[in-house]
Each structure stands twice: as structure tokens, then as C-alpha cells.
Amino acid sequence: MTGKSRNSMYSIIIRSGINRGSHFAGRNTSTISILYLLLRYTVTPILRCTDTPFLKRGLTSQSIHILLDMLFFLIALSVGFEGGYNIPAVGFKDLNSGVAFSLYINRHFRFADLCIGARTSYFSVENSAYSLYFYGLSIGLAKNSWLFSPVIEFGPEYARRKLGSSKESGYGFNYTLGLLINVHFEKLRFYPKFYYEGITDLKTHAGFVGAKLGVGYEF
């Protein structure tokens, strides 16, 4: 990494830190602010000494910066849970409705909320021996401060089909377009979410319409 790019990384961290401070101002998040300032003004300057033997042997300053940024992410976030129903809309003609769950962490950035999550959904058909599972990771954007917020998510998906003892599995790509209705109650956020969830293996596209009820908690 060149000195220029390293400096730009610092500036990104500093800028995001300022933004983080402004976002949580007035939200009784003094603990987070103190933790952030401690990390920002103690650990980060130490990491600038990239010639330290310890750093050379083990983690580089760059990887520690990434870890530190992840830590910043973890101490300034909200977590949430969603659950709901999916109904086949494109393809999957023989599937019944399925259930879907997801867990996520959410972090506010300058103009939107970035959401990283893991999700699973399960579908069945009239043949009770058959089951179709999806497991996925997703990254998404929404605007939690708005009452009505569009939401977009995408990420890789692992699909598993099972009929009796026979199984098939494979990977796909998932994307979600939808609408959230945010209701805030102190640190809690409740929202119904209506969406179209598409899934593709780049050969075939299929999708579901769904509704979930979510709850998030801002630390």
C-alpha cells in the first residue's frame, strides 16, 4: 500500500468517525462516543508505526485497520431480527408459501443505513418429503429515519433441495427490492417490510413476494 492510499484510508476512518459522532449526537450514546474516541486517539496513532517488529511478524497495520474499522462498526450499530412469509411469484409454481428469517446489524452512514445480515428461508410443497432451503448473506441499504423507506439488498445464496434422502445444492445470487414502514419507539424500531425477492443462478430467474415484520434495537 502506498503512503497516499494509506493516508486516504485514515481520512476515510476520520471522516466516518465524524459522521458517526454527528449521527449519535443527542442519542444518549456517550459510551459509544468515549469508546470510539479512545480507539481513535490511542490505537490508531500507534498503528502508524508500521515498522514495529510485532506488526511485521503478525498482522499488518492495514489488516489491523480493517479489524479496527469492523470494531468501530460493531460498537456503533443497531441489531435486528426479521421474520415473515414468502409467496412464489416467478417460477416455483409448485411451491407453497414459505417462511423467512433474517438477522442483521445495521450502521448509519451519511445518507443511508447500511445493513449486513444473514438470512434463511424454507419452502415446502404438497409432497411432504420435499423441502427447499435457502441460506444467504446480504448487504443492503435503507433509510431508517424515514417513515417510508425503500430498501435494497443483495448477496450470495446457498440453496438446498431435499427429497427423502436425496439432496441437491448449489449457489445463487439474491436481491431484494422493497419498502419499509419504520415506527420508532425510543431505541426500538419496528417495521413491516414488503418486498420482492429475486433469486437467480444466471440461467434462470425466480422470485417471491413477501412480507416480514422486523424489530431493531439501536445501541
Binding site: 417460477g91 416455483f92 445444492s169 449457489y171 445470487f173 444466471l202 434462470t204 425466480a206
Partner: peptide
């Protein structure tokens, strides 16, 4: 991803 040639969605949805 495109090179995987495991069209699980095609098989499940078609």
C-alpha cells in the same frame, strides 16, 4: 459464480 454450472434455481423453479 457463472462458471459453477450448477443451475440449482433452474432445476428448482422450472
Amino acid at each position: 459464480f457463472a462458471a459453477c454450472e450448477n443451475n440449482i434455481i433452474q432445476r428448482a423453479a422450472s
